[in-house]
């Protein structure tokens, strides 16, 4: 499962990155490390990018990047 598969309100834990990802270092440095808990907040009005919450702050990133962030199963769904 990837970050792209979550629905608004879902929470999950990062378990890794797909191999061909750009910007992995940048994402890691912003705190998206293995074990970080992520909450999917919402899609942008036109569907892309998405808004996520982690470590108490909100981040938006495009779906093509979200697709390469691997997650363990959702922790909770609201």
């Amino acid at each position: 499962m990837t970050l792209d598969d979550l629905n608004p309100g879902d929470e999950a834990v990062i378990c890794g990155y797909a191999n061909e990802i750009e910007d992995e270092i940048r994402l890691l440095e912003m705190g998206l490390i293995v074990g970080s808990r992520i909450k999917f907040i919402k899609n942008a009005p036109f569907g892309d990018p998405i808004q996520i919450r982690l470590r108490g702050y909100d981040l938006s990133l495009r779906r093509n990047l979200a697709r390469r962030i691997l997650l363990s199963e959702p922790v909770s769904t609201s």
Binding site: E22, D23, R26, M30, Q51, Y57, S60, L61
Partner: peptide, 9 residues
Amino acid sequence: SNFIMELPP
């Protein structure tokens, strides 16, 4: 740009 942008409060 991969548009990794913070949405500040």
